[in-house]
Design a binder for these strands. Structure first.
Lengths: 270, 270
DNA sequence: GTTGAAAAGTTGTCCGGCAACATGATAAGT
DNA sequence: ACTTATCATGTTGCCGGACAACTTTTCAAC
């Protein structure tokens, strides 16, 4: 392995400390952390830990450049990342300042931390919270076009099942349509945000399995029940139907070993 | 006003188009958009609109530099911002690629877009979704220490009210404690994320008002009811108590003019 | 056709410089 | 003494070039 030939000591050390002998293999999965990324992570940590408080001024770019032994370019890219997160705001000629409520500016779920069954249960519980009331709100607020859209979603699921497909994507679309029918775009956005964490991509490419046909039919019946309650404008019934629909999948995962890796989890539940 | 003396045409135009005559006044509130920020916004738009799809490669830094008439530094800072958002990932020697599910990587609420009463109702509805089930889950899962913590929160609120203070912060602490008692850290994090949008900073500095004393006592009684249901391990009762607690404040805002600015909204509701 | 090295292209980092802006100190004027 | 204008200094925003590290393509040798 070739050593870097001409570089400042700090930069060389920063690289050597992470890339000399970590056999990560393919770079796609574990991208090499860059100097800018490392610095951004460190600054983020300082803020999250509260050592830099709201309104505080960060060290100047020159000070950081010297302190970390990197170029000003790297410092600026790191700060650009923090600005994108809303953690800091910069004022030309004055400095960079920690934003108000910097600790909770964005809500993010780290997919890398989502490894065990217990982690998935947490996401599913959060989803359940949203969808229960979403169904109730939809029953209260859904307009004619929203109901038509729901009807269309149900038909698409039925068609897929008839073709022997698991209809994973169409299922989620139905749930998103309910969120849309609440008239609250925030709820729609949040459910779509949670989606990918509950439906990992491998599941989307799952081949149809004959033994799940009965299961899928049962699921579709639950969908119909939810739809019926929404059409009737009955929030309580909608909530109950949605709970019945989601709680069963949740129970499956709650009963499974909590530290089981996600690969061996039960089939798409809902 | 002095004209810039020597600069590339593109950069000069970019500046002139926004800063020549906009009398924003204090820069703290409306920070001047930077070139990097503008480019980042544009690229984000391309991705959100779906014109750049997952897995697609972005133009090279050199191409963007030429296309937008800015320096490579600006391009790199813009990309650094996108990387921080998880919208793209870069591979040295290869290029920058749009991430999977790039459209919903982070959940963020733009405070600037939160201007009317209708906007606030949306956030409150989202909060209600979470807190209903949080109360139910807390009733199911709360341990001894969590219950003690809840008790402590109630006492702190009572003390503040006795001192004639509105106890806004302590109130929210109580709600966060319930979220903590669910044992689901995701729910805790999300409620804390929503907090600042429901409790704007001016409210925290509100002076005590005598006429709200009776109101505060009533609110505290509702808190006690929620606490009682959780202690008894009764999820249904906890949900009902929480709904009663939150729904009233929500009703106040729903009945208020939907396009009313937030300044004239009803007092802290819950 | 396979292999291996060279070449070209791309991102990561460094450097120096200037413009734009903010802030405090200083000097001028009242 | 107080206000106002000016200047010096420090900071961020932007530019351009350079090289290192890495990836992909090309192409020659086998």
């Amino acid at each position: 392995m070739a050593m870097p030939r001409s570089r400042t000591a700090a930069a060389r050390n920063a690289r050597a400390s992470r890339s000399d002998s970590d056999g990560y293999g393919p770079r796609q999965l574990r991208p090499v952390p860059s100097l800018a990324g490392a610095l951004a992570a460190q600054l983020t940590g300082e803020i999250q830990a509260g050592r830099l408080q709201a309104g505080d001024r960060l060290p100047t770019e020159h000070q950081m450049k010297d302190a970390f032994g990197v170029s000003r370019t790297v410092v600026r890219e790191a700060i650009a990342a923090l600005k994108a997160d809303g953690l800091v705001t910069s004022r030309q000629g004055s400095g960079v300042f920690v934003a108000q409520d910097a600790r909770h500016r964005t809500f993010r779920i780290n997919p890398d931390r989502l490894t065990t069954n217990a982690d998935l249960v947490q996401v599913m519980e959060l989803r359940l919270c949203i969808e229960l009331e979403a169904a109730a709100l939809a029953a209260r607020n859904a307009g004619k076009t929203a109901l038509q859209e729901l009807r269309r979603c149900l038909k698409r699921i039925a068609d897929e099942i008839a073709r022997g497909q698991p209809a994973v994507e169409e299922d989620f679309d139905f749930h998103c349509c309910i969120a849309d029918a609440t008239g609250n775009p925030l709820i729609s956005r949040f459910l779509r945000f949670l989606g990918p964490f509950i439906i990992p991509r491998p599941l989307l490419r799952m081949r149809p399995q004959r033994q799940t046909q009965a299961y899928l039919a049962e699921v579709q019946a639950e969908h119909e029940a939810i739809y019926k309650a929404i059409v009737e404008g009955n929030p309580t019934a909608a909530r109950r139907a949605m709970r019945h629909h989601l709680e069963r999948g949740l129970a499956l995962n709650r009963n499974a070993p909590q530290d089981a890796p996600l690969a061996e989890r039960p089939p798409w539940p809902a």
